[in-house]
Computed example of a mutant assay.
Amino acid sequence: MDFKPIKLANKPLIDGFLARDAFEVADVHFNNLYLWRKAREISYAIIHDCLIIATKYPDSTPFYFYPIGLGDKKAALQALIERAPHPLELRALQSQHVAQLEAFFPNAFEITPMRDRFDYIYSVPELIALSGKKFHKKKNHLNAF
């Protein structure tokens, strides 16, 4: 497997894979990947016609996002399992990914939700008003700016 660092020139490739799949997790969208590429190693590979994103923080083992695209996701995951010198860790799974993973590899993975890593959605009117205790820190940042 040939993982390559994320570069600006990879935007069309990554966006193309995401456009062909129902991947809604913000962590795997190109802008987010590119923005964080200097804080941690972020690389990608094409495996069985699926885009695989790998992330590695300094002094830690890498983790991967669920295969993206219309390729053979089971074969891509099997290749990752066989390649990994450590237990394979997948992050930012959507509910359909969990169901697929359990169907592909019954009882092979321990799935632990990490609530502090869940995506969140803000209400536009609430962000505009920034009223109440909930937005106090954001309002302070805005005022300081």
Rank of each mutant, 00 (worst) to 15 (best):
M1H: 08
D2S: 14
D2P: 10
P5V: 01
K7C: 11
L8F: 02
A9E: 09
N10R: 09
K11W: 00
K11R: 13
P12E: 04
L13Y: 05
G16N: 09
L18D: 04
D21Y: 12
F23G: 04
F23D: 05
E24D: 10
A26G: 08
D27I: 04
H29A: 06
N31A: 11
N31R: 02
L33D: 00
L35I: 01
W36M: 10
R37S: 10
R37C: 05
K38N: 15
R40Q: 12
E41S: 15
I42Y: 09
I42F: 13
S43A: 15
A45F: 13
A45Q: 12
H48D: 14
D49C: 08
I53W: 01
A54R: 11
T55I: 01
K56V: 00
Y57N: 02
Y57D: 00
D59S: 09
D59N: 15
S60F: 06
T61L: 13
T61N: 09
P62T: 05
P62W: 05
P62S: 05
Y66A: 01
P67R: 07
I68M: 03
I68W: 00
G69F: 00
G71C: 07
D72E: 08
D72K: 08
K73L: 00
K74R: 12
A76R: 04
A79H: 03
A79I: 00
L80Q: 01
A84P: 00
H86R: 08
H86Y: 13
P87T: 10
L88R: 12
Q94Y: 10
H97A: 10
H97S: 03
V98Y: 00
V98I: 09
Q100S: 11
L101Y: 02
L101P: 02
E102A: 14
A103S: 10
A103C: 01
P106V: 03
P106N: 11
P106I: 05
N107R: 14
F109L: 09
E110P: 00
P113V: 03
P113L: 08
M114V: 14
R115L: 07
D116K: 09
R117S: 08
D119V: 04
Y120A: 14
V124G: 07
E126S: 14
I128N: 09
A129W: 07
L130Q: 08
L130I: 10
S131P: 04
G132A: 15
G132Q: 14
G132F: 11
K133P: 08
K133I: 15
K133M: 15
F135V: 10
H136L: 15
H136W: 10
K139D: 06
N140R: 13
N140C: 08
H141M: 13
L142P: 03
L142W: 04
L142F: 11
N143R: 03
N143L: 10
